[in-house]
Amino acid sequence: MRVSILRQKSAESEPYREIFEYDGSPDNTIAVLLDHINYNDDITDIYGKRTDRISWECSCLQGICGACAMVINGVPALACETFVRDLKGEEIDIRPLSKFPVIRDLIVDRTSIHENLKQTNIYIGEYQPSEKSSHAQQYITAKCLKCGLCLEVCPNYVNGRNFFGAVFANDCYLAASRNRSKSKEIRGVYSKHFGADCSRSLSCMDVCPMKIPTITSIAMMNRK
């Protein structure tokens, strides 16, 4: 099976494509496939040309840390829980998330996610729950991986300068619902950087590895 990878040597250089042959099992994940291409033998493309090893990130290798987020056959997904057998077509297409600056190959710089939350002071501070708070929603939003898949798929998210996306909305909800005294302040920045521009395509929910019902966070944040 052919695997086409969009590569880039550094932040400043131009992207280019390289095609590899994968002869491993279809029961492997894309994370295993990448290791297989990198380390099964000398790394060569389908034309036999020796090339660099493909850079990508991982940590947990079981879909709970968000390190390996990338775009696989056009769908933003985690490489370590996407199986070759589930992909359609003759060729697998892999590229880095496009809404973040590329560092090298499939590694992107996702610091904007953390920077935006920091700049807007989204933290709990002190636990003072509001009366109507939903434990189940807080539990699931606190599982957010900060992987960036929701931003990749979002039609409104461009580069994180004004609109901060679902990852921001869910952290806003978590902080506001766990500390009622910060709720008003958080609703202000929420509205400015999310509420006002979200067009409710909700594609973020389709790709979220933790299956966070962002729509519930939105509904709770809009409730007065």
């Binding site: 610091t111 953390h114 606190a142 599982k143």
Partner: peptide
């Protein structure tokens, strides 16, 4: 639930973020 470590990390990340905003914690990634 079944994610104790993750939930503690999420709470500590928020608390660290508060001090990051104040300039007392400086995160250096990569």
């Amino acid at each position: 639930g079944a994610s104790t470590g993750k939930q503690i990390v999420s709470a500590l990340v928020m608390e660290a973020r508060r001090f990051e905003a104040e300039g007392l914690i400086e995160r250096r990634l990569r």
